[in-house]
Design a protein around this nucleic acid. Sequence first.
DNA 1: TTGCCCCGTATCGAATCGATACCATAATAA
DNA 2: TTATTATGGTATCGATTCGATACGGGGCAA
Lengths: 186, 186
Amino acid sequence: MEKVDVFELIERMAALIRSEERKKCTELGLQPVHLQVLDYLSRCNRYSDTPAAVTNYLGMTRGTVSQTLLLLVKKGFIKKTPDANDRRMVHLELLPEGESILKQARPSELFNQASSILKEIDFSSHEEVFVKALSALQKANRSQSFGLCKTCKYFMNTPEGYRCGLTKGPLSQSDSEKICQEHAVS
Amino acid sequence: MEKVDVFELIERMAALIRSEERKKCTELGLQPVHLQVLDYLSRCNRYSDTPAAVTNYLGMTRGTVSQTLLLLVKKGFIKKTPDANDRRMVHLELLPEGESILKQARPSELFNQASSILKEIDFSSHEEVFVKALSALQKANRSQSFGLCKTCKYFMNTPEGYRCGLTKGPLSQSDSEKICQEHAVS
DNA sequence: TTGCCCCGTATCGAATCGATACCATAATAA
DNA sequence: TTATTATGGTATCGATTCGATACGGGGCAA
């Protein structure tokens, strides 16, 4: 765990997943936060299915959470039921419609593609698993044509230095390690 | 890669990182999207440092991106420079202030803690690396007291079934695998 | 030149979000 | 018991964000 920072890799994967989710969200007419709330509600038990817990977990204010929940109720994704013992409290419950939206929003094709890419790879070390997992995600995401410059099929290593075969422009070491929009896999 | 879904684990880690970032964001008076833009700009080369690329990458509309960039310029985080050849285009550049904010917003303590936890663990299989990485993240995040019920120090396995030592309430199998707000590590 | 496409911006309206104030209930103290 | 404080949730307002639409200006091809 010394050469590569595993959590740096995880953060990169998280960013990739985030932007994928964002696209799904706009398709479904939701904000990313709404999905996060639904996701949380799908994974909490009866001690943590309250607005206050959502507030703590997501780091929003109570007022904002209250409104978000109002919206989710109005859309029919969740249900509120008062607590039997403490009448200040409210329990939240994910309705089938909410689960369905959640399932739609999950970038499952991306994951499936990435999984099958990952399956065919042999690993020599544990850090490598993360490296390969990230690159599998990036490959699976290639439809959007974003990726690291030096993994692009137009990337050329000439005697005069790195060069982009598409634009013919020279590339610095730093360039080659950054994201390019024109990224293509061979 | 059959028993546990690696990307399911990654998604969970992503969610954890997201909520951590959100907290940092509100502290810094920014929206999560702004950080995502800054992060992108720190990792793109001269073929992808334009508003259009940001638009594609984050899945927002051009108008929204334009406004976001306006705000980031006003705050002194980025700089715009027109393209020399194509005068329709604009190149974006992260300023030192922007890099500094980005560095502040990154949940580095969380990662450091998680890393050191992870370092002391032996792995028997490659999938296990992901399982342990998630649990390391959760442990490092314990200050917020969220975590899986069955990993809590109050979790009890009695002859009559699972039970919460804090509330004395019985727990179903499903309960025990969900997030609890009162989660504590021993 | 004309027409067309692309990049970026401006504007408007709907929605989100945080701050503040507020109400109801519970827990605690007097 | 009553008073006080703490807690969980809501309502309202203003600032901000975001998407839709329209627009201007530059490149490109016929």
